[in-house]
Structure formats: C-alpha cells, structure tokens
Simulated assay, not measured.
Amino acid sequence: MKSPPVRLALAACLVFVVAGCSSTAGTSTHQSTRISAKADAALSELRGRVLSKGPHGESPAVASALTLTVDEEAQVRAKNATAAIVMHTGGDDWSQAQIAGLKYQFEKLGIKVVAVTDAAFKPDKQVSDIETVLSLKPSIIVSLPTDAVATANAYKEAAKTGAKLVFMDNVPQGMTVGEDYVSVVSSDNRGNGVVSAHLMAKAIGGKGKIGVIFHQADFFVTKQRYDGFLSTIQTDYPDVNVVEQKGIAGPDFAGDAQAAANAMLTKYPDLSAVWAVWDVPAEGVMAAARSAGRSDLVLVTEDLGKNVAISLAKGDLVKGLGAQRPFDQGVAEATLGAYGLIGKQAPPYVALDSLAVTHDNVREAWTQVYHQPPPDWLNSSYKK
C-alpha cells in the first residue's frame, strides 16, 4: 500500500499531465479556428474575381460582357452557319456541360451543330478529328487542343479554310488572336487552384503532410491550377508540408492517380491530405484511400463531377473543390463564334470566376455549374 505522500505526489503529477493535455488540445483548437477564419476570409475575397491571365498574358474579360444586339443576332441567323465541336475528351461531366452550353447557344443563334468529336486525350486522334470535320466545311470550330504543339498545324490548316476558331482553355502554338482565331475562353483555373488550397488548409487545420497529383503535360489550364494551389498552400500555410508530388499523363487518369496515391500512402502512412488536379484523378485517389483503409484522408480537387459531388454530399473523403462553370463557358464560346461570323471585335481572352464548393453548398453549386436542379442521386446522398 502506497503512503499518503506518494499518493499526493502521483495526484499532483496526474493534474500536471491532464493540464498539459488540455493546454495542447486548447492550442490545437485555437489554431484550427484561426486557420478556418483565415481561409474563409480569403475565399470571401476571391468571390467574383478572376486571377488567371490568358495564354499570352492577356487580361481577362468577363463572360457577362459578351452580348449581341437584336440586329447582330439577325445577321448571324442570316448566315445559315454551321459549327463543329472538337473536344479533347467527351467522357466527363465537365465536357458534357460544355457541349450542352454550346448547343444551347448555337441553337438560340440559328447555328447548326454538324459534328461533335472526342479525341480521348490523344493528339493524333484530335488531328484526325479536325481533318474529318473540315470535310463538312463548318463556319465555326470550337475546340480544346489536347496538345498545344502536336495539334498546331492541324488548327492552322483549319484557320486557312475561313472557319472561325474559338478555343477552350488552351491555344495551339504559333497562332495569333484576331488573325488565326477569334478568342479563347476559360474558367479561372489559377483561381480554382487558390480556392482549393484554402479549402484544404481549412479541412486539415492548417498543418500536416500532403501529397500533390498534377497533370504532367504541356496544358495551360492544368498548369495554372497546379501553380495556384502550390503557391498558395506553401506561402499562406507554412505548417502544411508538401512531402510528395507525382505527375500523371493519362489517358487512364483515374488509374494513374490511384497508383500515385497508393505510393504516397505507403511511403507516408501519416499523410493528411492529397490534392488532385481534377475530379477524374480524384476518383483514383478515393479508390487508393479506401483500399488503404484511410477513411480519414482529406481529398481536395477541381471540377464538380458526379463522383466527387457524391463524396462531398456524404461528407466522405472529398472535403472541397474549386469548380468551373462549363455550361456558361460553352455559351460564351458559341457567342464568340457568332462574333467571328459578323466581324465583331472580340476580347482575346474571356474567363469565368471560380466557385468554392463544400459539403454545405454542393447541391446549390450543382445548379450553378450545370444549370439544372440537383439530381435525385445527389439529394439522396446528402447527409445533414
């Protein structure tokens, strides 16, 4: 049996340990609250702003500034024009929303869509698609080049036919705005990267080890996302440690990202979070996390696709993302095609601001992004 002095000493030690733990917990809670407030303030300041510059350093014009008068719309309809949509890929929600926005606006302007192609992220396939489309003699071509160098000659040949070219996101090398193409339209991809950095910092309390999965290609917009995320997380949140970065080149972006995430989780069992460059690679990260039993892993990404939306709605692995506005982007691209038809001066670069999406606003964000009510599967997935 311990003597009273020993018991008193042990009790004093226990009080000291508990007080120390309480102090540590209090400090951690304080830091998390401070980081959350800092991230929220930054996100609020970003709302409605565009951070990206164009492919050649152009300042952005806002999509809402693109207008056609009643007389100009009549001039467009009188052209009996046609349009071809030459996609880098058609197999994701973003691409389908772009196509929907394009078709909506082209129909509104009396322009017939004669072709929609899907290059499956393969430059040689896209070159072939362009050659096939040119046989239809479209008045307008709207396209996202898979590779700025490998596809350049094909687009230059398209420009020589007199077709009015409007680009999504990326511009082929050696082409001049106002001469070879009308304009380029993009979401604020740098802004989306910045948004996702603040969302990640908030989700992990501003500290921890993270991995980054980026697009290993000469692709203007994905570079902007990566640069925006990395510079913000490293500059604004010094207690977040980027311990691993892996590039993926596709075309199996989900599979490549899963392999990259598996390697990260094996090498760093205490990894707090992963950033993925868009929603399809994020799906691969989700698969890796589930396989490793890492239900606590925080995942932040870009683009509001179906599977990441479900994860957000459930309060699962995905904690936030920076969303583009692809339907509105398609409307802007079709409008610029009409500008080209009637010789109206177009801004060289048009951008749409980023949208921060979390569990709380995922259903409202779906409507903003796709111009449709939240689907039943999203509403049924949502956990309050």
Rank of each mutant, 00 (worst) to 15 (best):
K209R: 12
A203V: 04
T132R: 11
S135G: 02
H198R: 12
N189V: 05
I140L: 00
A158L: 12
E157N: 14
F219I: 14
A201T: 09
I140C: 00
V133R: 04
F219M: 05
K160H: 07
F219Q: 08
K164S: 12
D180Q: 05
D147K: 06
K223F: 01
F220M: 03
S183F: 03
G162P: 02
V149M: 10
G174A: 08
G211I: 01
V212E: 04
F219L: 11
P172D: 04
I140V: 04
G211D: 00
V185M: 01
M200I: 09
G162H: 07
K202A: 14
V133E: 02
T151K: 05
I210G: 10
F220T: 07
K207G: 04
Y155H: 01
A148P: 09
A158M: 10
G211N: 02
I210F: 07
L134S: 06
S135V: 05
T222Q: 13
V212H: 08
N170F: 03
Y155K: 02
P145R: 00
F219G: 01
Y155A: 09
L165V: 04
L199F: 06
S139L: 05
P138H: 04
S183T: 07
G211C: 06
V166I: 01
T161Q: 11
F219D: 13
D180M: 08
I213W: 06
P172W: 00
A158H: 09
S186K: 03
A203M: 08
I141L: 15
G191C: 10
S139C: 01
S196T: 15
V184R: 01
L134A: 08
E131R: 15
H215Y: 15
K207P: 03
T222W: 10
D147W: 02
A159M: 11
M175F: 05
A148K: 15
L165G: 08
K164H: 15
A152K: 12
Q224F: 04
I204P: 10
G208W: 14
I204K: 13
A154D: 05
F220V: 03
N192D: 14
I140H: 00
Y181A: 03
A201H: 11
H198Y: 15
I141A: 03
S143Y: 00
D169A: 13
N153S: 15
M200D: 12
T146V: 15
F219R: 01
G206F: 14
G174Q: 06
V221S: 07
T151S: 10
K164R: 10
Y181D: 01
D169C: 06
V184A: 00
V149P: 03
K223Y: 04
Q173D: 13
A163M: 05
T146K: 11
L136I: 00
L199W: 08
P138E: 08
A217N: 11
K202F: 09
G191R: 01
A158R: 06
N170T: 13
T222H: 14
Q173R: 14
Q216W: 08
T222N: 09
F220A: 07
A217W: 02
I210W: 07
A201P: 07
T176S: 05
D188R: 06
S186I: 04
L144I: 03
L165S: 10
